[in-house]
Write a protein that binds this DNA or RNA. Structure first.
Lengths: 333, 333
DNA sequence: ATGAAAGCGCTAACAA
DNA sequence: TTGTTAGCGCTTTCAT
């Protein structure tokens, strides 16, 4: 920068002003500085700027695990919004382990990020509280009590499974089973929505929750059990798309046609559900919108760090595809 | 830091030494400093450190697009190795657009990363050359001429399709078609491998390349064309798994059984191929190993920035699943 | 509109 | 082993 100043015949303060295009520089000096910078291939040092300004225009994003396509889309929305506003994203993952998540978070803080966005974090609540005290923090896809001074973006998972159940009831189904997500992040919410919707429809007796998980194998095993029973359901609501695909395999093994002999619904409307070969009716969460909302929340909180914690709830939608159809006549109850 | 020094009754240089656990501090001072830091909740400022040290221990990773699970695994390998060595990852994506990729790269440079890893970048060659002059750079999954002063990690895609063809020939197939990947990154290499393997087996006349793409729809359309022809192939090699799944849909529509009436092979051994419901024979690339190799390459180059450009080639493997089987008797030629 | 000087929080080189 | 003194490359007063 000093070399640019010399070449342009001005002071380095002036160069600094030009670099951040301040309006109060004469056109003559601005041009001279820009020209010199160009010729020297000058590149501003953001490290030095961060130290002087005491802020980095950087957001730390902690992701539960990179493999889940759900996160990729959230980041898309986040990045788009952040980029527009001149922020950069520092992305890290704890690869599913709480202690690694803590390390990543600490590293963000040491790097003096201006805020953190935690995507479905599994660290203890106390860690979240600590983070919220240090920096603007947004927590995504994690249910439970609000964390003081942190904002939270979640989908209404109960409403999601409710949508699914109502769709099935509309098709004439009554014996609707649910494959539970086990330890999965939103498994509890999804199950509660299912149970409530069944109860509201007067189908309390037919409630059937089969233990499972958010994995392929979990869905497969659970569906096996359901089909082996005396009165198999005519429709099944899986905890997520992955489990639904596992269930699909079980149906195939039993020679059952999906959408005809039995209806199946997933959750997440992931890429999998959209594959024609699979064509799974599924509950969609507005992922990139969630990312945008998270950035907005961050901005609001940086403007006013002491505002009270908020919870932003977004509504899921049902996307109907080939895996659901009318209750087969005579089947089930 | 100065407050830590005061509280511990030492100079700030000493605190600095303790923070970077230098061996040349007395146990007494070390303890005092650690205790003071603990009590004050002191957190080192990596920005300031970076400015003073003129290096950041940060690697900029540019990803072609976050949605492709291929990249997630590469990053896993990279992150693991980097973490072990005390490096952080700054992840950015150009979301498939060259100009955005350039922006991200420039932003990495302004942030003074110690190196960049470019995963399947689409920017022009001149941009790569420019990056390599500024900082240690590693280019992954991009074929073509070596870039001066940059190292490159690729898989031998020609060998990959060759493996696939040889597997099919071993099962008795001769009429083996290839669905081309179109503009996709490694499409050309894959096609060349297919053609060479066919020629080597004396099946030159049966070479059939159907234009397609690396997408679901591309695979679907191409397979439609193949099946509509007079002499449909008995085996098909798709450009990647996604296209293979699209092809699967077409087979289903024609009432053909995969692995029996027709054999199908994908490429990438992605998550999709592993789903039992799909069970696709596919060519696997050692993704996380590629990530580790990339980090190694970065380290070697930072140690010696002027070494000549190298190309690290990793070998693919064939993973056989249910989508391939013996040529049906009497079918095809 | 422009410049001089101080300082951001750390490390590095040298001295003690 | 420990402390002192300069920077690192910027931004930010405060003058002019």
């Amino acid at each position: 920068m000093v070399s640019v100043a010399e070449r342009a015949g001005v002071s380095k303060s002036l160069v600094s002003l030009v670099m951040r295009d301040s309006p109060r520089v004469s056109d003559a000096s601005r041009e001279a500085v820009l020209k010199a910078a160009q010729e020297l291939g000058y590149r501003p040092n953001l490290i030095a700027r961060g130290l002087a300004e005491k802020r980095t225009r950087t957001l730390g994003v902690l992701i539960f695990d990179l493999h889940n396509p759900f996160f990729a889309e959230v980041i898309d929305g986040l990045q788009e919004q952040a980029h527009e506003d001149g922020y950069r994203l520092l992305i890290g993952t704890g690869r599913g382990r709480a202690e690694e998540e803590e390390e990543v978070l600490e590293s963000f803080l040491q790097q003096r990020v201006d805020g953190v966005v935690l995507l479905s974090p599994i660290v203890e609540r106390s860690v979240l509280l600590g983070a919220a005290q240090e920096v603007s923090t947004v927590i995504m896809a994690r249910h439970g009590k609000l964390v003081a001074h942190a904002d939270s973006v979640v989908t209404d998972d109960q409403a999601g499974t409710r949508l699914a159940v109502e769709h099935l009831i509309g098709l004439g189904h009554e014996a609707i089973a649910h494959i539970d997500g086990g330890e999965g992040a939103s498994a509890l919410e999804r199950r509660l929505g299912y149970e409530a919707a069944m109860a509201d429809a007067g189908l309390t007796e037919l409630i059937r929750v089969e233990p499972g998980s958010f994995t392929d194998e979990g869905g497969h095993a659970a569906m096996q059990v359901l089909l082996a029973g005396e009165e198999p359901p005519t429709a099944v609501l899986a905890g997520n798309d992955l489990a639904a695909v596992g269930a699909l395999t079980a149906l195939e093994e039993h020679g059952l046609r999906v959408g005809e002999d039995l209806s199946l619904i997933g959750y997440d409307n992931s890429y999998l559900a959209r594959i024609p070969h699979i064509s799974l009716t599924s509950v969609a969460q507005p992922r990139s919108e969630m990312g945008r909302l998270a950035f907005d929340a961050f901005k609001r909180r940086s403007a006013n760090p002491n505002r009270r914690a908020t919870r932003i709830v977004v509504e899921p939608k049902l996307v109907v595809r080939g895996s659901t159809g009318p209750r087969p006549s005579g089947a089930g109850r």
